[in-house]
Amino acid sequence: MIFLKLFLVFSYIGLFNFGGGYAMLSFIQQEVVQKEGWLTESEFTDIVAISQSTPGPIGINCATYTGYTAVVNDGYPWWMGILGSILTSISVLWLPFIVMIWVSKLLLHYKDHLVTQSIFRVLRPAIIGLLASAALSLMNTENFGVPLQNPVQFSISIVIFAVVFSGMYMRKLNIIYTTFSCGLLGILLYGVLGL
C-alpha cells in the first residue's frame, strides 16, 4: 500500500527535518531512494535540480515531486500521482505544525537559556553532516558516468562539478542560470555532438 507508506515516511521526514530543505534531502535519499526504491538515484538528482529552479520551499517542491513520481513509478495512472503528491506535501507538514503550536511558547521562554543554546550548539554541526552525506551519496556513477566504461562523460561531469562548485563558492552564481547553462551544455555535448 504505497499511499500509507508515503504518508508514514513523509510524516517521519517532516518531524525530524531540522536545518532546512537541504538537510531534508538526506532523509529523502535514505528513505525514498535507498530503502523503498521509489526513485532511482538519477531521478532523485533531477528532482533536486527542478526543486532548486522553481519558486517555493525546496522541501515542499521535493516532497510534491517525489509523491507524484513514486506513485506513477508504482504503476498507477497520472491522476493518482496527483493524489500522491498532495498526500506527501501534507504529510511533511502536519507534525511540525502540531509541534509548533505546543512548543513555540516554551521555546520563546527558554530560548536564551544555557541548556537550549547548548542543544543547538551540538545540533547545528551535526546537521552539516546530513548535508555532507547527501552530497557524498550523490557522487555516484548514475550522476557522473562510469569512469572506465564512459571516460568522456565522466571527465565532462568532473569539469562541470569543479567549475560550478568553485564558481558558486567564490561568487554567488545564480542557481537557475547555472542549472540551465549546464543543461544546455549537456544538450550540446551529448545531443548535438553525440559524445
Binding site: 538528482t45 565532462i156 561531469s157 562539478f161 560550478v164 547555472t178 542549472t179
Partner: peptide, 12 residues
C-alpha cells in the same frame, strides 16, 4: 540532465 546532474551535486 546529464549536464545538470554533476552541477546539482556541486550546488549541494
Amino acid at each position: 540532465f546529464k549536464g545538470v546532474r554533476p552541477a546539482v551535486v556541486a550546488l549541494l
